[in-house]
Computed example of a mutant assay.
Amino acid sequence: MATLRKRNGKWQVQVRRQGHSPVSKSFINRKDAEAWARDVERRLDQSEALPARQASDSRTLGDLLVTYRDKITPHKKSASVERYRIDKILRHSIANTQAAKLMPAQVASYRDERLESVSGETTRQDLVLLRQVLDVARREWGLKIAANPVDDVRKPPPAKARTRRVHFSDLRAIAKGLQTFRNPLLRHVILFALATGMRRGEILRVEWQHVDQKQALLTIPVTKNGHPRTIPLSRRALKVLADLSVTASETEELVFPISANAVRLSWQRLRTKAGLNDLRFHDIRHEAVSRFFEAGLTLPEVALISGHRDPKMLLRYTHLDPRKIAAKL
Rank of each mutant, 00 (worst) to 15 (best):
148 N>A: 06
37 A>N: 03
96 N>H: 09
89 I>W: 00
74 P>S: 04
45 D>G: 14
32 D>M: 05
33 A>N: 09
151 D>S: 13
144 K>G: 07
143 L>G: 04
140 E>S: 06
89 I>K: 06
67 T>V: 04
127 L>M: 10
135 D>R: 13
35 A>F: 03
99 A>E: 03
132 Q>K: 12
130 L>V: 09
110 Y>T: 09
100 A>T: 12
93 S>Y: 05
118 V>N: 09
54 Q>T: 14
102 L>M: 02
139 R>Q: 08
78 S>H: 08
105 A>D: 10
44 L>N: 04
65 L>V: 03
55 A>F: 00
132 Q>A: 12
97 T>W: 01
53 R>N: 10
62 G>L: 03
76 K>I: 07
46 Q>R: 15
56 S>I: 01
87 D>P: 06
122 T>Q: 10
88 K>I: 10
98 Q>G: 00
135 D>L: 07
58 S>W: 01
99 A>W: 01
107 V>M: 06
94 I>A: 03
119 S>L: 06
137 A>H: 05
131 R>D: 01
42 R>V: 10
141 W>P: 04
74 P>W: 10
53 R>A: 12
45 D>C: 07
59 R>H: 02
94 I>Y: 01
70 D>G: 06
121 E>G: 15
85 R>T: 11
143 L>S: 00
119 S>T: 15
50 L>N: 05
98 Q>E: 08
95 A>T: 08
57 D>R: 02
61 L>H: 01
44 L>F: 10
109 S>Q: 02
139 R>Y: 01
138 R>W: 00
46 Q>V: 10
115 L>K: 05
99 A>V: 05
113 E>A: 15
94 I>R: 08
111 R>P: 02
125 Q>I: 08
105 A>E: 15
64 L>R: 04
97 T>S: 12
57 D>V: 01
146 A>Y: 11
141 W>T: 02
127 L>F: 02
133 V>F: 00
103 M>R: 09
38 R>F: 09
80 S>T: 09
121 E>T: 14
150 V>H: 04
50 L>T: 08
138 R>G: 05
131 R>Q: 12
129 L>S: 06
49 A>K: 14
70 D>P: 03
67 T>Y: 08
63 D>I: 10
50 L>H: 07
115 L>R: 11
82 E>A: 00
132 Q>M: 10
140 E>L: 01
110 Y>C: 11
92 H>K: 14
152 D>C: 05
152 D>L: 15
61 L>V: 02
147 A>C: 07
66 V>H: 03
99 A>T: 05
81 V>R: 15
130 L>Q: 03
37 A>I: 07
151 D>V: 08
144 K>I: 09
142 G>K: 06
84 Y>H: 14
63 D>M: 03
128 V>C: 09
113 E>N: 14
43 R>I: 06
61 L>C: 07
93 S>N: 12
49 A>H: 13
